[in-house]
C-alpha cells in the first residue's frame, strides 16, 4: 500500500491543469443534483401552488426568481423541475450509453454475423430523424415518464453503439486480447475483462455529450408540449409555458433557460476535466 500512495499522488498532480475546470463542472452538477434531491426542503413554495396575484412578476425577496404566467414561484418550479430534467436525462443517457457500449463491444468481440446484424440494425435506427421519431412515439403511446426515457434512449443508442464498436474493434486487435483468446476465454470475459476497461474514458466523454443532447431533446419535446405534462413541469416546459413573458423580460422564461445552460456547461466541464487528466496520464506512459 505504501507504493500505491505516491502513485495516486502523482496521478492527482498530473491532473492538475484541467482540475480547475473539472472542479467547477463538478460543483455545478453537484449543486443541481442536490437541488433535485432536496427540492421539497429547498423550495420556498409548493410545486404547483399559485402563490401570487402578479403574473410574470419580477425578482423579489418573496419570489427570488419572480413568478410565472399563473403566478407560481419560479424558483420552486425550477427546483422541482430539476428532478424531471436531470432524472429523465440521466436515466435515458444511462440506458442509451449502457446498451450502446455493451452491444458495441459484443459486436466487435464476436464479429461475423452478429456484428453485421447489430451494425445494420443500428444503421436503420440512426437513419430515423430523432425528433420525428419522438413525436411518433409520444403520439402513439402518450406522454409518460417511461415512454420519454425509452424514446430518448432508443434515439441515442446507435450513436453510442457506433463509438463503442469502433473503439472495441481497435482494442480487439491488440495482443493482450489475442492472448486472452488463445487462453480460451469466453466472449463475455473478453468483453468485460479485456475490452471494456480500456474504453472507459472515451465512453465517459461520450456519455457527457449524450446527456446534454438528451436534456435538449427532452426540453424541445416539452417546448412542443409533448414532454412532461402539466401541472408537473421540467425546465423545457417552463420555458414554453412562459414564452409570452419574453416580451416583458420576465425572469420566468429566462431562468429555466439559464438552468438548462448551466447544467449542460457543467456536465461538459466535468467530463473534459476528467478525460483531459486521464489522457495526459496515458500520454505520459508512452
Amino acid at each position: 500500500m505504501s507504493e500505491a500512495a505516491p502513485a495516486l499522488h502523482r496521478r492527482l498532480r498530473r491532473r492538475g491543469r484541467n482540475a480547475g475546470a473539472g472542479l467547477v463542472g463538478a460543483a455545478i452538477v453537484g449543486l443541481w443534483m442536490f437541488a433535485a434531491l432536496a427540492a421539497p426542503l429547498l423550495a420556498p413554495h409548493g410545486e404547483a401552488a399559485i402563490v401570487s396575484n402578479t403574473v410574470f412578476g419580477p425578482m423579489s425577496g418573496r419570489f427570488p426568481l419572480g413568478t410565472d404566467y399563473l403566478g407560481r414561484d419560479v424558483l420552486s418550479l425550477i427546483l422541482y423541475g430539476a428532478r424531471y430534467t436531470i432524472g429523465l436525462a440521466l436515466a435515458a443517457t444511462a440506458l442509451a450509453a449502457g446498451s450502446g457500449v455493451v452491444l458495441g463491444s459484443l459486436a466487435a468481440a464476436s464479429g461475423g454475423t452478429l456484428d453485421a446484424v447489430l451494425s445494420r440494425a443500428m444503421d436503420t435506427l440512426i437513419s430515423l430523424p430523432g425528433l420525428m421519431f419522438a413525436l411518433v412515439m409520444v403520439a402513439a403511446l402518450g406522454s409518460s415518464v417511461p415512454v420519454l426515457i425509452a424514446t430518448a434512449a432508443v434515439i441515442y443508442t446507435p450513436g453510442a453503439f457506433r463509438i463503442a464498436r469502433s473503439l472495441a474493434v481497435d482494442i480487439n486487435a491488440m495482443d493482450f486480447v489475442v492472448v486472452a483468446r488463445a487462453r480460451g476465454e469466453k466472449t463475455h470475459t473478453i468483453m468485460f475483462e479485456e475490452i471494456l476497461p480500456n474504453m472507459v474514458l472515451p465512453v465517459l466523454t461520450d456519455f457527457g455529450l449524450r446527456f446534454v443532447f438528451i436534456v435538449l431533446l427532452l426540453s424541445s419535446l416539452s417546448f412542443l408540449g409533448l414532454g412532461i405534462q402539466p401541472p408537473a413541469a421540467d425546465w423545457g416546459s417552463l420555458v414554453r409555458e412562459n414564452i409570452q413573458g419574453l416580451g416583458y423580460g420576465a425572469p420566468a422564461v429566462i431562468m429555466p433557460a439559464v438552468a438548462i445552460a448551466t447544467l449542460t456547461i457543467g456536465v461538459n466541464l466535468l467530463i473534459d476535466g476528467f478525460a483531459g487528466g486521464r489522457r495526459r496520464e496515458f500520454a505520459d506512459g508512452h
Binding site: 493482450f176 489475442v178 488463445a182 480500456n198 496515458f282
Partner: peptide
C-alpha cells in the same frame, strides 16, 4: 480442450500492447 489450451502458451513481441493497460 482447456487442458490442451493450457499446455501451449504464446508470448508476443511488443510488450506494450501484450499487457492490458487497465489491469
Amino acid at each position: 480442450t482447456r487442458e490442451q489450451l493450457r499446455r501451449i502458451q504464446i508470448v508476443f513481441q511488443m510488450p506494450d500492447v501484450a499487457l492490458n493497460p487497465a489491469r
